[in-house]
Design a protein around this nucleic acid. Sequence first.
RNA 1: GCCGGCCUGUCGGAAUUGGCAGACGAGACGGACUCAAAAUCCGUUGGUGGCAACACCGUGUGGGUUCAAGUCCCACGGCCGGCACCA
Length: 803
Amino acid sequence: MAQPYNHRAVEEKWRKHWEEHPVNVNDGKKPKYYCLDMFPYPSGSGLHVGHWRGYVISDVWSRYKMLQGYYLIHPMGWDAFGLPAENYAIKMGTHPSITTAENIKNIKKQINQIAAVYDWDMEVNTTDPAFYKWTQWIFVKMFKAGLAYEKEMPINWCPSCKTGLANEEVVNGCCERCGSPVTKKDLKQWMLKITEYADRLLNDLDKLDWPEKVKKMQTDWIGKSYGAEVDFPIEGREEKITVYTTRPDTLYGATFMVLAPEHALASSLASEETRDIVDKYIFDSSMRSNVDRLQDKEKTGVFTGSYAINPLNGAKIPIWLSDYVLADYGTGAIMCVPAHDDRDFEFATKFHIPIVQVIAKDGQEIEHMTEAYTEASGTMINSGEWNGMESAVLKKEAPMIIEKMGIGKKTVNYKLRDWVFSRQRYWGEPIPIIHCPECGAVPVPEEDLPLLLPDVERYEPTGTGESPLAGIEDWVNTTCPCCGGPAKRETNTMPQWAGSSWYFLRYVDNKNDKALVDKEKARKYLPVDMYIGGVEHAVLHLLYSRFYTKFLYDIGAIEFDEPFTKLFNQGMITGKNGIKMSKSKGNVVSPDDLVRDYGCDSLRLYELFVGPPDLDSEWDDTGIDGVYRFLNRFWKMAMDNKDKDVPETPELTKTRHKLIYDITQRLESFNLNTVVSGFMEYNNKLIELSRKTGVDKTTLETYTILLAPFAPHIAEEIWEQLGHTDSVFTQAWPEYDEEAMKEDEIVIPVQVNGKTRCTISIAVNVPKEDVLSLAKDTLGDRIKGTIRKEIYVPGKIVNIVAK
RNA sequence: GCCGGCCUGUCGGAAUUGGCAGACGAGACGGACUCAAAAUCCGUUGGUGGCAACACCGUGUGGGUUCAAGUCCCACGGCCGGCACCA
């Protein structure tokens, strides 16, 4: 009688063994495969079953690639700077460097429970000076390239986190981290010119094997639009107002103009009569927060008292101010065509401004418009020499026409803004800049990097817009590397995204102090072939990383300009009713007890079995019994057969090839939940065969190799029990033979009028006529009426149509 | 408002190009083993009607295409996610 499966002993045994005998080795000959997880920030609360999922998926894929003969790059590290780590430290009253180190230790232990094949020699930590030396180096390079610049402007400010935020970090007007409403604050900020890369970031999406959803989100975020800038003279003044429009075809329909209250000319356009209300409007707008502006859709506005001249037809149109026009997009001023734009229509209706239709809708001019006609399709009307043209054609040509006329120019615009890069917080990389009264902003010389984050007593945010570093006089006061005169250090730190924008390059050469990554190693091991993580970084980390990679490519530090060839976003594991797992909700499921009671292999399988890997899944503890029973049944079947010397039968051969085929197909298409059910199905089949003929050794071995990426411990143990002294992971992924899978006899359904009535069993190459007559014989008098049509889809189905 | 995804038994979920809907698992019920329980093993499990063979209904709703629709087309509803006055 075989011993029952003891997961604790077996897993413990192989855990130790693999530590001493790593299975992923670089022999210098194998091609590389780089499979990367989004690295975690070392939080104090530890891992829950949701975190496991992504790591299990990437590990299964990694081990599969290993069995396919690749040398695997599968590293892990820590995104340890930033707000979460700092806030945790403040809450605990302990310095972030201490809590971070503790948290890393704990999480590493928890990650090791997964038994993933991480290569810990490659570990990186963004808070390690040897690492952030290069984070700072990249900043200096960007500064020298003119991509990092300082600007005083109103930026997004989180009053709770007490720091400025990038646009990408503001979600529905609130802080991405803490959910507090974001306000505006005038601050001198370091900015990165990501907009300079807008076109490349947009165009290169085409060459990426990424989920369409993420590409779409990045496309929308970059938000490229084509249009024209048109200059409108102001009546009685020298200046012109330039507007940006994507619909220059509707220029004749412009009946008013609106400027953002922050527009440079806004106040000066007021007349004596309107002076008071104009200034009040400008003041009131400046007091309104982002959230207010977003929530109040009801349009407000004031007439300035001035008029602009439509450069096409000389029409005099009133100039208004309204906060529905954004100051920092386009020119901060728009021409308004109420007949063909919803917002302009709403505004014109509210303030009784004329509406002039310039595109015929369904060939008609509408007497009283009740809504804007926004499509660019129809014939131009009321448009002078443009009358009769097709609006779709004109929309494309108008920018050139306008340019030729000298009243404007063809142009493009982006929603993407430059990246607000300074944070007024302690726990981040100090920005390596020295402010000299003589020389201006001077970068810290590259040979002086890293610029260490000073150890301080007080690291709480000040809330004033000053960084906590500003209070450390002997650190702040320094000398200018340029002129040697007294100077002050920049006291802002970098955002958390700084380290995560390039960390994946460092793994393959994490100890190099001469370069960010050695060229030769980069050529050999980079870029990332498969990147696995949650979708929440679609326009944050994933956009920033692409920007950094392109920059590093441009300065010749690396030789590729896209970091992640393929991307997979795993779905979230939620608690009951789809509620996100969180401490405050009390629905966090810890993997620790599950690993103890069911084993690592069971939990790995169940993480996959819960549902399709790309969709969110609700966690339900009771389901893990199913995979646990499966492993025990597989163990028993294997133990029952391993010493029996069962000869291979045609049925066993066929089953084995079909097994390889099914598992490989499902794995390749990333249907990992169905891979697990496939293993169960074939195990049931083998148990059945085991009773009939027994199961031969080749089939047992094949099954074991296939299972190894999913349940490595039990597979390794069975592999040994089957008489092998080497690791199952030194084997090659089995191949199937289509010929060997073919059945000689197949069962096909027979339908009458599309409803299945019976099945018939036929040999594969039976001619149509014979199949049909067998079908009709089997059906007998169940065919009612006369036969109108007989359909036979070879190998699939018979359908008799009768009436 | 715009864009994307999803909707299938009691539950999680399966279903290459349209071809036996409900694989696999959970739960439940029945049986074997046991003094008993757990574990394990065997069986049943979409609904309605029927002793039964079988028949009818059934993949969010309504319509359509087709010999055949969960799958394709049109309209509508619900849930989730992204963007949101970007001119």
